[in-house]
Design a binder for these strands. Sequence first.
RNA 1: GGGCGUUUAGCUCAGCUGGUAGAGCGUCUCCCUUACAAGGAGAGGGUCGGGGGUUCGAAUCCCUCAACGCCCACCA
Length: 868
Amino acid sequence: MTNINQELATTYEARKIEKEIYDFWEKNDCFKADSNSQKEPYSIVIPPPNVTGVLHMGHALDGTLQDILVRYNRMLQKEVLWMPGCDHAGIATQNVIEKNLAKEGLSRHDLGREKFLERTWQWAEEHKNRILEQFKLLGASFDLSRKRFTLDEGCSNAVKKVFVDLYNKGLIYKGNYIVNWCPRCQSAISDVETNYETEDGHLWEISYALKDKMGAIVIATTRPETMFGDVAIAVNPNDYKYKELIGCNCVMPLTGRVIPIIADEYVDKSFGTGALKITPAHDPNDFEVGIRHNLPQIKVIDEKGCMMKNEYVPPQLQGLTREEAREKTVKMLEENQVLVRVTPHVHNVGKCQRCNTTIEPLLSRQWFVKMEPLAKPAIEAVKTGAIKFIPQRWEKNYLMWMENIRDWCISRQLWWGHQIPAYYHNQTGEMVVAVENPDPNNYTQETDVLDTWFSSGLWPFETMGWPDTNHPDYKKFYPTNTLVTGFDIIFFWVARMISMGLEFTKKPPFSTVYIHGLIRDEHGQKMSKSKGNTIDPVDLIEKYGCDALRFTLTYLCTYGGQDIKISDEKFEFGRNFANKIWNASRFVLMNLSKKDDELKLDLNNLSIADKWILNELNETSKLVNENLKNYRIGEVASILYEFFWNKYCDWYVELSKIEKNESVLVYVLENFLKLIHPIMPHISEAIWQKMPINKSTVGILNAQYPSYDEKLCFANDAKKMEMVFETIKTLRNLRAEFNIPLGSKIDIIIDKNEELYSQIIPYLERLAKVNSVKFMADSSIPKSAYCTVGDTKITVPLEDLIDLNQEIARQQKKIDKLQAELNSIEGRLKNTKFTQSAPKEVVEKTKERKDELLSEINLVNKTIKKLS
RNA sequence: GGGCGUUUAGCUCAGCUGGUAGAGCGUCUCCCUUACAAGGAGAGGGUCGGGGGUUCGAAUCCCUCAACGCCCACCA
């Protein structure tokens, strides 16, 4: 036998071993899915990280949870596919490239579309693999041979087909609507890409003179610079203040243009002055009002956020930015004495999610997806339970959004992305929507590209070979089983995948959506580079090890999906556990004298301790399976921690130093390694491979996951063993209270349960430093300390070592505690309502407890009497 | 303006279908016991945010208030 002591270092060298193990899996092609397999399928698609991205803590959590599910199901002997890939991330990536260009003093327009895309592709190719390589550091067991990219040929074909189909079904339309326009990105963005921030602004009240009457009407606005695009003043039809003015005209200050006063329910009588200027080209609500009243749309701010040069904008304002124009407009209004009042006003301002620039609501020609018909089946799928959210509360959130869905603006004025498959005739301008350009000589393709989420919305099926529904992957692995993601992209991504999946495959793309919390810093702040509070998972892996990171994150992952606050030091928890596993295993392996067949578990040759640990293992297996199936993954981590550390190490391994059963020692370790493998894949694999047992699979990752086994249920023996532990703990406690040094051994006299205790005398000797054990029904040694374990009294003759008063006090304390419990229990039992209405078992249990307490109190009382 | 979440030991948090509160870290005492000091043995520490209700029994279910956080929403 090799010298294992030399082979295994005394502290676990995580990184060295983790690298070796991952290499081993890769070399053996362990993560490759076989679409021809007869086994039951299990599949997950990764939420595709951005091409330009680097691994962050969110990925670490998300990736770990997916890997746990994937590895668990692989060990349940299913055919598992975890599909990896990246997202082209339209705006995000284009921004990065443009920033780099800017360093060279160039803009994308200097390069032109073709050159720019060439450059972006080059960047994407260079960075595409980086993040997936980093996922490997997490131990991700995805099938890299199937790696996909949202802009690859297959995805592009799927996107085109989906676009054309939706267009032909009338679910995609093009038109002039008001959209969220980012003047910096120079593109439209969707509603979900717009974040609102409260800002301190002003409410300016401006007087518009009536045209054919004396007097004026005063409106209130937060954006005076848009007034040049006004086409009406609106009041509420029921507002008596303005009743006679409806239908009148008024003269705009500064420009003198004449606009009507109209009535619309939308106007809130109580806000501001109750009169509202209508600017359809620069406000979404005004846009709606304008449509209702058939008003013109006057654009006064351009795509860069500057005042336009047209007949509506006063010459001195033309070309100014929105901000400059606002200041100057206010000044001009003041000079003209039409500014009635200025009050501070806090309001919400839309910001571009990507660059935080203030959004300009802008009238422009865009492409939209009509969402209502697509949302309907997606709502049904969740309502009927075809798709389940975990935790369930997210369903409400999802449904509320879907039921109030608005059309989705999918065109982006970018270059990086899927170019919209619409073609315009060079002369006639006729438009054709088709997968291919009907005639490249005469038709030019639409320059807009699609929102990134359009292609990621197809991710679960576009990666499986769709639209080829005979593709082996599609047939075997679609629909997928579980989608794992954070709540922040339910609207962006999850909702759209469900809609698109149902529309195009007629199947929900997954049956379970497992939503986890977000990673935050130790103060609960969101991690961001700008705040400088990020923790790099790669650093953590280097410092503590991958399995330590995974275990810690898993442990912190609650069923309710709470956000997870982390700090560097928290990962010591996982590292310590890995080290414990390592050392316990080292101990077991070092002390084995048998091999292979000799280590086969013999159920006919078990001590009470063996039965106890096997019973515990069995219970643990049961719980772990139950909790994994129910996505209580944090609970699994805590169950396994408790089992291994507090049961196996603290007790069973210690007992094995006194009297060992190698086969049980190995059996329990082996099964624990299997149980922990999904969470801590490397260390479990590393140790498993060193174990002298019959290994029927390539690695532990393919071994059969342990489950509850009737044959290993030893409940009665386990209970007895618990009593033994209680005895040892009680004696240790006594030792500590009386400051008896470990060197001086104690004698004990036990009054009951001789059969049990005589089996475990060596344990008492070693673990409680007992010198001798006597069995005597009634020991009457007055100068003694006493312990009671249930109905058993243990006398510890300490002669002069102890102060009798101290011992009396100690016993009295125990009585007080027992008595308090007894009082409460008796109260309950006296209450006939309790005995009548509580479940039988509960009443029974309470009665049993009462008897236990009574006899123990009785016992302690007797000993006190004897002492005094 | 709606909706959701959180409030439990000094800190960070568990606590599933109601049966009388747990872990890790930190603190205190003792131990470098031949797997592990990233360890071992022991101890202390909580009227479960406030108030009300349902119940034999509430951290757990209901109502209400408070604080903090998040999401959605067009209030100019």
